[in-house]
Simulated scan of single mutants.
Amino acid sequence: MTLGDFADDGLYRDITGFAQDTPAWVRHTAEVWTEAGILVFGALFVAAWWRSRRGDTRAFAIAVLAPVATAVAYVCSELLKSGFTEERPCRAVAGAVPSLAECPPTGDWSFPSNHATIAGASAVALVLVRRAIVWLTVPLALLMAFSRVFVGVHYPHDVAAGLLLGALVAAAAVRLGVRPATRLAGALRGSTAPAVRWLTGPGPAAAAPPAAYAASHRRR
């Protein structure tokens, strides 16, 4: 099955034509960001894990689940690709300007966008870890999705579907996995193995002794 008859060719031509008219530094930035954005989300996952090591067990479990949920979304995207087998627009759209990025080979299908799926899943999963960073993760995900069309390797509907798929799968995966993950994290935090203790962190109890100590001194 393909989506060729429904592809938004005109919008794709408009965006890629606009991309060709932008300054060279804009085109170069888009080419770098469209791939490096995944590394940025990876760094945010590491930061979320590190910060959660001193949080309660449920918060820690969600931080660990976040990249796992993103990986699940990626697998779902790959499965959908094999079912739709939509050709890349950089090869299929007549009259389009050359893509800024190298056009992936035939067999590396277009719908949905894996990059947009990862971006959507990462954005939602990180917000579930800490709601305050929604102002950062959502714009980053939208920029990453748009960049896939800008550099010419995806249709707009590819990235829209990828963002939606990633967001839904990540939210569902975290919701379904949070209880068993919290139980597992609690058990690991009770371990005496130094490596395990370092990975899971001390939890909020680490902050309790100083507070208790200060309270006892105030009573004297």
Results as ranks from 00 to 15, higher is better:
123 A>D: 01
160 A>P: 09
162 G>Q: 10
179 R>G: 02
185 A>C: 11
163 L>I: 11
147 S>F: 11
145 A>R: 09
101 A>K: 14
126 L>Y: 08
142 L>K: 00
129 V>C: 13
88 R>K: 08
150 F>D: 02
63 A>H: 10
84 F>R: 04
118 I>W: 04
158 D>E: 11
96 A>T: 14
184 L>K: 14
81 K>G: 00
76 C>D: 06
75 V>Q: 06
136 L>K: 02
112 P>F: 05
96 A>C: 00
127 V>S: 05
100 L>V: 06
140 L>H: 07
166 G>W: 01
105 P>S: 05
182 T>N: 15
71 A>L: 13
106 T>Q: 03
150 F>V: 10
180 P>G: 00
83 G>M: 14
118 I>L: 02
156 P>E: 06
180 P>N: 01
104 P>D: 07
116 A>D: 05
170 A>S: 15
74 Y>V: 15
110 S>E: 10
111 F>Q: 01
190 G>C: 12
90 C>E: 04
173 A>M: 13
80 L>Y: 04
187 A>I: 00
183 R>Y: 12
193 A>G: 06
169 V>F: 07
69 A>L: 14
104 P>R: 10
151 V>G: 08
99 S>Y: 02
190 G>W: 05
67 P>F: 11
107 G>P: 05
129 V>T: 10
183 R>N: 11
168 L>V: 14
139 P>E: 03
79 L>R: 04
